[in-house]
Computed example of a mutant assay.
Amino acid sequence: MGQAKAMFNKLKGVEDRFIKLEQLLSDPAVVSDRVLYQKYIKEHGEISKLMEAYRRYKKIVADLEEARDLLTDDDPDMKEMAQEEIGPLEEQKAALEEELKILLIPKDPLDEKSVIVELRAGTGGDESALFAGDLFKMYTRYAESLGWAVEVMDSHASDVGGFKEVVFQVSGKGAYSSFKYESGVHRVQRVPATETQGRIHTSAVTVAVLPEAEDVELKIEPNELRIDIFRSSGPGGQSVNTTDSAVRITHIPSGITATCQDEKSQHKNREKAMKVLRSRVLDKMIQETEAKRSAERKGQIGSGDRSERIRTYNFPQGRMTDHRIGLTLYRLEAIMEGSIEEIISSLRTHAQAQALKNEQSL
Rank of each mutant, 00 (worst) to 15 (best):
R56Y: 07
L71A: 05
A94R: 14
L71D: 02
M81Y: 11
E85C: 01
M78K: 09
K59T: 08
E90R: 12
T72A: 15
K93C: 12
E80L: 10
G87V: 14
Q83N: 11
M78Y: 04
A95R: 13
D75R: 03
D75N: 14
I60W: 01
E97T: 14
E84P: 00
A67W: 00
P76L: 14
A82H: 07
E52Q: 14
T72I: 07
Q92M: 10
Y54S: 09
I60K: 00
I86A: 09
E99Y: 02
Q92C: 00
A94S: 11
D63F: 06
K79M: 10
R55A: 07
G87K: 15
E85S: 04
A53K: 15
R55D: 05
V61H: 08
E90S: 08
A94F: 04
A67C: 06
R56I: 03
E97N: 10
R55Q: 15
P76A: 05
D73R: 00
E91H: 04
Y57N: 04
E85Q: 13
M78W: 01
A94K: 15
M51E: 07
D77W: 00
M51S: 06
L71S: 01
E98Q: 12
K59H: 04
L70Q: 05
L96V: 12
E65Q: 11
E52K: 14
A82N: 03
M51P: 03
A94Q: 13
Y54L: 07
E52A: 15
M81W: 06
R55E: 12
R68L: 10
L71W: 01
L71I: 08
E80T: 07
D63Y: 03
R68S: 05
K58T: 10
I86M: 08
L71K: 03
P76N: 04
K58F: 01
E98Y: 02
Q83W: 03
T72M: 09
E80A: 15
A95G: 03
A67Q: 01
K59D: 09
V61S: 12
E91A: 14
A53W: 11
A95D: 10
A62Q: 12
A53D: 11
E98D: 13
E99A: 13
L64K: 05
D74K: 13
D63S: 14
D77N: 06
L96N: 06
K59I: 10
K93L: 11
L64I: 07
P76E: 10
E99L: 10
Y54R: 07
D63R: 11
K79C: 12
E84Y: 05
P76C: 12
A53R: 12
V61D: 10
G87R: 13
Q83I: 00
R56N: 14
